[in-house]
Amino acid sequence: MAAVNILETKGLTKTYGGLDANRDIDFALPRGDVHALIGPNGAGKSTFVGMLSGRIPATRGQVWFDGAEVTRLPAHKRISLGIAYTFQITSVFAKLPVRENVALAVRRILGRDRAAVRAKVDGVLERVGMVDQAYQLAGDLSYGHQRVLEIGMGLAQNPELFILDEPTQGLALPEVEAFKNLVNDLRGETTILLIEHNMNVVMEVSDSLTVLNHGEVLARGTPDEIRENADVQAAYLGGV
């Protein structure tokens, strides 16, 4: 039976030479939610996401994905369990065509079946609206389009969990709108974890939020609850 929470952490801590970047973070992400992780600069969001994805080893604590403990698993193994990840600074295969970028994501799952891979790539490109750019080199795309491509590569993996690291950073307003539509389109299909600074986006699409500050969890709740939370306001406006 599938776990209620797709992602959980218990006491997750990262210490760098005496300094706690993250301290004792307990976190639970219910399956199917769109959840946002926010916090002022230096709150420890990147470190936390690093430990979730496996790119940063934890000093203490555990990470659970879909009911199984993955704390000691390397990043690529966690991904193959059903996580898709987009980078804070968009990272695609710039010198390869858009099609091949998506195909690489697909092939890890569908393997040698060329017809199936081709069909899936077509489907993904259709969905994210990049059919016309299929044979362009990814590096020649505008930044906004590269971001969309990266999301497409994530979709190609049919992920259980989609981790999006600052997805709207560097996007123009219409592109941000398109992104919000995409999130709403994905709702229910997969669980989404957003790390974001853009409060409009966060408040509009999220089912729930976690606020980090000084490496610890400051608050959890729905957008409305967080909006009212005095501690959160203080943290953002400085002082706490």
């Binding site: 994805s53 790119r55 990043a75 690529h76 193994k77 991904i79 193959s80 990840y85 980078f87 990272s91 695609v92 295969f93 710039a94 010198k95 390869l96 690489l104 994501a105 890890r108 590569m153 993996q157």
Partner: peptide, 14 residues
């Protein structure tokens, strides 16, 4: 893919 962008390839599960 590893030649082009190793980290991206890793985070695709390879």
């Amino acid at each position: 893919a590893i030649r082009e962008n190793e980290e991206r390839a890793r985070m695709l599960g390879y």
